[in-house]
Design a protein around this nucleic acid. Sequence first.
DNA 1: CCACAGGCCTGCAGGC
DNA 2: TGCCTGCAGGCCTGTG
Length: 296
Amino acid sequence: MPELPEVETVRRGLAPVLVGHSFKRVEQRRADLRFPLPQNFGARLRGRKVVSLERRGKYLIAHLSGGEVLLMHLGMSGRFTVHVPAKPGKTAGGRVSTAQSHANPKHDHVVFHMEQGAVVTYNDPRRFGFMLLIPAPELAHHPLMQGLGVEPLGPELTPDYLARRAAGKAVDLKAFLSDQRIVAGLGNIYVCEALFRAGLAPTRPAANLARKDGRPREHARRLAGALRAVLKDAVAAGGSSLRDYRRADGALGEFQHAFTVYDREDQACVRPGCRGTVRRIVQGGRATFLCPKCQR
DNA sequence: CCACAGGCCTGCAGGC
DNA sequence: TGCCTGCAGGCCTGTG
């Protein structure tokens, strides 16, 4: 389930084999993912160099020579696998990947063959992910980019920002934080985790963050701090559910072992001294996990 | 067989 | 009228 920490982990893994390198050949094994792939996708990428690889929210953005941008989203099940060929006379190269090693090859939809030999495979069973080619000047005005909220690990995520955006909102905190127009990159897992760290109930009205007087204002501060902390920790752990590129042994991202509430229904609250039990509720048709004793 | 997982868009209905 | 809100549904497939 790629959310910001997983996408950032993917970005860091892909950057060494993509940035500064050109596409030698691109295999497109089906016409569409969530959207149709760009017309003449492979031909348009061939020979282009990747100038930089950035992340914005859950999007990966590869700036290409020739003035176009490759905009990618992993949806729910998108994974990249990197295969680096052995150097002649050196130790064997290997498979270093973000993917489960048993990923079904029938869902390998796009394969990038790079000039220097790296092979980058995009696998996506559910095909909620996508790739688009956009003229660079249009990126900022693209509907998918337009209106994206602040980067939670950047300087713009402040208590004031949260309070201002929450003002007058009737939605609950779960929906408020899940809205990519407020904060870009959060998904179900990290919304649950951040609200636990902040000690705030997911059912609480977002508008309460906006009150300037007294304790409620403290909530916006706690929430901003919790969001930053949980995402920073998760990025440092290499994400939660993806293999870490930097390891040849294929160990899992470590953060899934650090979940405090997510997927822990009926288990004891991790907060020392709390005798509470993690509960699962449904909000907006999606599971929410919380400790009712810690989160008010 | 079924429910569920989750990102994100669309459509619809109700309220102010 | 038009916006905000909260639903449900759809896209997909693997898993239990």
